[in-house]
Amino acid sequence: MEEDKKWKICVIIPSYKVKKHIINVINSIGREVYRIYVIDDACPEESGNFVEQNCVDPRVAVIRHKENQGVGGAVLTGYQAAINDHADIIVKIDGDGQMDPALITKFIEPIVSGKADYTKGNRFFDLDSLGSMPKIRIFGNAALSFMTKLSSGYWSLFDPTNGYTAIRSDVAAQLPFSKINKRYFFESDMLFRLNTLRSAVADIPMDAKYGDEVSNLHISKIIFPFVKNNLINFIKRIFYNYYLRDMAVASFELPIGILLIVLGLMVGIPNWIKSLETSVYTSAGTVMLSGLPLIVGVQFLLSFISYDINSEPKTSMRPRPMFSLEYDNGAD
């Protein structure tokens, strides 16, 4: 009977320069997981061979990339393998030991209960645990979180670059794999793509571990691409959600607000400059011609942002499968 079917949980582990930690990560994955995919992303350490030679877990399957595709490319390869294997939920964790596999059941619970289509980690939920996080990461994640809120429409989420995630397989199957950014923008781009599918996303509180792993992320190299890509996704999301697929009051508030602000600045800036140069006070009428459009324009923008925040997908619109709450670990 359909009601007796158990959830098939698959785990994806991108593998690139994590040879020192990956076996311990695999050994820490509980029996609730049906299959484990290790994606050797053209790793110079040949981690795929290392796993096959040193891991006896029958759930593990190694998939190799001939060329490095980045973390996003490795995850998407794992998604496709899990979809082909008829997985119900796909969990992604890193192989460097920073993510505790014991949290897998916590990540899949909102999906099993029908409250979310996608879950992701949030290392900022417990303020007391932030002391172990490097200060530069706290500042960087705060800035990236704000940009991702704008571009993705998930205003209640934080820590957008967190790679500990879980997703319904049927949702993953709807993603445009060929369009998703495969490098360091992958997690943020995923949120944008999920919003276009109106998928419900939930943050899962977690602690981060920082050991002797070496990060391949260089802030100076990715900051400008992050800003550019978030801006592009913001424009596309607004067009898709407010003009192409649907129309609302906010569809008019945004352009009117921008127009009024631009008009106010066009009137005000030349007069402010002239006033500074001549030391002559600008007339009250001129101030009003500039100030009133600015004030009203800002109000329109705030109203649009309020509408956008309230439009965040909060509940999964997809039918909940009639599965039991047990998990299929592949045992006979």
Score class of each variant (00 low, 15 high):
residue 8 K to D: 04
residue 8 K to Y: 06
residue 8 K to S: 08
residue 9 I to N: 01
residue 9 I to Q: 04
residue 11 V to I: 14
residue 12 I to K: 01
residue 12 I to R: 02
residue 14 P to L: 03
residue 16 Y to W: 15
residue 16 Y to H: 09
residue 16 Y to L: 10
residue 17 K to T: 05
residue 17 K to C: 09
residue 17 K to A: 14
residue 18 V to T: 06
residue 18 V to R: 08
residue 18 V to Y: 00
residue 19 K to E: 07
residue 22 I to W: 04
residue 22 I to S: 05
residue 22 I to G: 04
residue 23 I to H: 03
residue 25 V to E: 11
residue 25 V to L: 02
residue 25 V to S: 02
residue 26 I to Y: 01
residue 26 I to K: 02
residue 28 S to T: 02
residue 28 S to V: 01
residue 29 I to V: 08
residue 30 G to S: 12
residue 32 E to C: 01
residue 32 E to A: 01
residue 33 V to Q: 10
residue 33 V to E: 06
residue 33 V to A: 08
residue 33 V to W: 02
residue 34 Y to R: 01
residue 35 R to P: 01
residue 35 R to F: 09
residue 35 R to D: 07
residue 37 Y to E: 00
residue 37 Y to T: 00
residue 38 V to K: 07
residue 38 V to H: 09
residue 38 V to W: 03
residue 39 I to A: 01
residue 39 I to M: 00
residue 39 I to E: 01
residue 39 I to D: 03
residue 39 I to N: 02
residue 39 I to H: 06
residue 41 D to Q: 02
residue 41 D to N: 15
residue 42 A to F: 13
residue 43 C to G: 11
residue 43 C to L: 07
residue 43 C to T: 08
residue 43 C to I: 10
residue 43 C to E: 02
residue 43 C to P: 06
residue 44 P to T: 12
residue 44 P to M: 10
residue 45 E to I: 01
residue 45 E to P: 01
residue 45 E to K: 02
residue 46 E to F: 02
residue 46 E to W: 04
residue 47 S to G: 15
residue 48 G to T: 05
residue 48 G to K: 06
residue 48 G to Y: 06
residue 48 G to N: 11
residue 48 G to M: 03
residue 49 N to W: 08
residue 50 F to V: 05
residue 50 F to E: 09
residue 50 F to L: 10
residue 51 V to K: 10
residue 51 V to G: 12
residue 51 V to W: 09
residue 52 E to N: 10
residue 52 E to I: 07
residue 52 E to Y: 07
residue 53 Q to P: 05
residue 54 N to T: 13
residue 55 C to R: 11
residue 55 C to P: 05
residue 56 V to N: 15
residue 56 V to E: 15
residue 58 P to S: 03
residue 58 P to D: 04
residue 59 R to N: 05
residue 59 R to Q: 13
residue 60 V to I: 13
residue 62 V to G: 11
residue 63 I to L: 15
residue 63 I to Q: 12
residue 63 I to Y: 08
residue 64 R to H: 14
residue 64 R to N: 13
residue 65 H to K: 12
residue 65 H to R: 10
residue 66 K to Y: 13
residue 66 K to Q: 15
residue 66 K to I: 12
residue 67 E to Y: 14
residue 67 E to N: 12
residue 67 E to L: 09
residue 69 Q to A: 12
residue 70 G to I: 02
residue 70 G to F: 03
residue 70 G to N: 07
residue 71 V to R: 00
residue 72 G to S: 11
residue 72 G to C: 08
residue 72 G to D: 03
residue 74 A to I: 00
residue 75 V to Q: 14
residue 76 L to Q: 05
residue 76 L to S: 05
residue 77 T to K: 12
residue 77 T to L: 09
residue 77 T to G: 00
residue 78 G to L: 11
residue 78 G to I: 06
residue 78 G to P: 09
residue 78 G to C: 09
residue 80 Q to L: 13
residue 82 A to C: 15
residue 82 A to R: 04
residue 83 I to M: 10
residue 84 N to H: 14
residue 85 D to A: 15
residue 85 D to T: 06
residue 85 D to H: 10
residue 86 H to W: 12
residue 86 H to G: 05
residue 86 H to K: 15
residue 87 A to M: 02
residue 88 D to F: 13
residue 89 I to F: 08
residue 89 I to D: 13
residue 91 V to L: 02
residue 91 V to F: 02
residue 92 K to Y: 03
residue 92 K to V: 13
residue 94 D to N: 14
residue 94 D to I: 00
residue 95 G to N: 01
residue 97 G to F: 05
residue 97 G to M: 00
residue 97 G to L: 00
residue 98 Q to F: 03
residue 99 M to S: 00
residue 100 D to E: 12
